[in-house]
Nucleic acid binder design. Structure first.
Lengths: 131, 131
DNA sequence: GTAATAGTGAAGCATCCGCTTGACTATTCG
DNA sequence: CGAATAGTCAAGCGGATGCTTCACTATTAC
């Protein structure tokens, strides 16, 4: 349970790649061999093996070799780790925004907008206000 | 709403970096300037600006410049995007595993373990069974 | 036994990432 | 005014990432 930062690192890192996400999607339907995972993915089998290794290192996937085929399966606990991290921050933000919303009720013509403090006295030249 | 793949890419990509996650954590308490975000993060201000740019490109953060300071705030919608993706896959997996569990009830001595199909007849030399 | 299948390991390569430094601009403080 | 603050821009650098190919092993099918 220690070292959650590095864990989150590896999980989000693993989820970054679209190919790996598509493997996760495939695996959420049920276990699959490496070749099955490779099939829809225009890249070499070796590349897919490497992706599987990343997924395993992150804990998102477990695998087991039987005969000559390696069967991969999802470990939902790892998904939960990432999901909780996001969820906790999101609820925090939303609660804060809700409180702010009911406190301000309505103030300016902007209904749902910027939660800043001061009335922004702007400078004359304003090369890029929002991004 | 199109191009969700690229969106997810950018969001997970943004969440990969521990520095950026710590900025998200700070921002979930409320808006902050770039310098405030930089304070606890032993790295140059320029580096932090670059991280903020990544966060903005992902949609996780919005910012607005007033005077000489840029104020950053979280956009919870982007958090929801990532959270839903994970959540959907996780529930899928868990439901499948539940069905499987009640179907098998108990079969072998392993209570909560491998959801494979065949009784794995193993080969004699088995250099690395699981990873 | 021979051949096809499934995967592994290692090297190499182009590109991307995170960061630094240095020069510069715009704003605010005294 | 001049100095400090807050941020921006651009170049550059070392290390990680995402592939590829080639050689090789173990298993299964004929």
């Amino acid at each position: 349970m220690l070292n959650q930062v590095a864990d989150l690192d590896r999980v989000f890192q693993a989820l970054t790649d679209p190919g790996r996400r598509s493997m996760i999607e495939r695996l959420s339907q049920g276990p699959a061999s490496v070749s099955e995972l490779a099939r829809p993915l225009s890249m070499s089998l070796a590349a897919v093996v490497q992706h599987v290794q990343v997924l395993e290192a992150s804990g998102l996937v477990r695998s087991q070799k039987t005969g000559r085929t390696r069967t991969c399966a999802i470990n939902p606990a790892a998904l939960r780790t990432a999901e909780s991290w996001i969820s906790e921050r999101r609820t925090l933000v939303e609660r804060r925004l809700d409180r702010l919303g009911e406190y301000l009720a309505e103030t300016a013509g902007v209904p749902d907008a910027w939660p800043a403090g001061q009335p922004p006295r702007r400078s004359s030249s304003d090369p890029e206000e929002n991004r």
